[in-house]
């Protein structure tokens, strides 16, 4: 089998497995996996920028929140149906990431991380400041009637699982296509050596801006999906913690691999789930794993798989 064939077979296999699992899993894990697939979509968006372009953002929660609130605010205050609201959320993420990218990409390295962190903090505080519309700390709860999309009840467990699966599959396919296209190859070239990519005649600024926008928009899609599927939009999703988590998922699963974000999100979800059974201080686990990964396993699980077993893993 060719490498392209193997790559497509592996990812199609994962997607089919996830689809079949809905009839096998007990209710508790069924709900968890739906959540993990949406979070993994967020992580895949993050991975486009961090894993493939080599830009470390500490403020992706602003894109996640832009999608979530772009969706929830139009539903709550304009009375939109879920489908156009979803589009509004994705559009909000697109515009925000375009604007933030245009400004933040004037910096590099540590300054880029701090600038994205600061912009995300400003977005978080803005959500709190306009508490009249966003209901600040308590957040917005979407009722069952507001989550009926094309006659499907998204608050129903089975429908929700399939909807999360569709979102995950579409974004997985898009990522795979994107990183294997010539545009994706340029992004990888920028990650490996930006001056050299520039010398070859590529407009690296425009490519990086496109990467920030694609990454931010995919994160917004995950945010809008999360809000719609789980019926809640809260300011905590815009906080620093939600900017750190996708970094952890991607580092754990393997930066610069397509399946890495899913593995990382799944692993972290259950790790936190188990840890929170013992202590309320479960974020200590997140911190410990971050430290251990940086010290001992820079490539993450996906990276190790690529190094040892599947050299062709995209």
């Amino acid at each position: 089998m060719t490498e392209t064939g193997k790559a497509i077979a592996l990812h199609a296999g994962l997607v089919v497995l996830l689809f079949v699992l809905q009839w096998v899993l007990p209710a508790y894990h069924h709900g968890n996996l739906a959540r993990v697939m949406v979070l993994a979509t967020y992580a895949m968006g993050y991975n486009l920028l961090f894993g493939y372009t080599g830009l470390l953002s500490l403020g992706h929660a602003m894109f996640f929140a832009a999608g979530m609130y772009g969706m929830a605010l139009t539903v709550k205050h304009l009375g939109w149906a879920p489908a156009p609201a979803l589009v509004a959320g994705i559009g909000a993420g697109l515009l925000l990431s375009l604007a933030v990218g245009a400004l933040a990409l004037r910096t590099a390295g540590v300054a880029f991380m701090i600038v994205t962190l600061m912009f995300a903090q400003a977005v978080f505080l803005t959500i709190l400041y306009f508490g009249e519309w966003t209901n600040a700390d308590d957040g917005l709860v979407l009722q069952r009637a507001e989550r009926m999309m094309w006659g499907l009840d998204l608050s129903n467990d089975a429908t929700r699982y399939v909807a999360a699966w569709v979102l995950f599959t579409v974004c997985l396919g898009l990522s795979l296509w994107l990183v294997r296209s010539s545009f994706g190859k340029v992004l990888i070239a920028i990650r490996e050596n930006e001056p050299r990519a520039q010398m070859l005649g590529y407009d690296t600024f425009r490519h990086k801006l496109a990467a920030v926008t694609a990454s931010g928009t995919m994160s917004a899609a995950a945010g809008a999906g999360y809000g719609l599927l789980f019926g809640y939009a809260g300011a905590s999703f815009a906080g620093v913690q939600y900017s750190i988590l996708p970094l952890l998922w991607v580092l754990l699963g393997g930066a610069g691999t397509i399946v890495g974000p899913f593995i990382g999100a799944l692993f972290t979800f259950y790790l936190i789930d188990i840890a929170s059974g013992f202590t309320s201080a479960y974020m200590a686990v997140v911190g410990g794993v971050l430290i251990a990964l940086t010290l001992f396993a820079r490539q993450g699980i996906g990276g190790e798989l690529r190094r040892r077993v599947w050299r062709w893993l995209p």
Binding site: L56, V110, A281, A284, G288
Partner: peptide, 22 residues
């Protein structure tokens, strides 16, 4: 290394904060 240091100190942040909570 600047970027890895940021990731490690983020980890340290959560460990110190949560151990204090415990």
């Amino acid at each position: 290394d600047p970027e890895r240091t940021i990731v490690v100190t983020i980890g340290l942040l959560y460990v110190i904060q949560q151990v204090t909570l415990m």
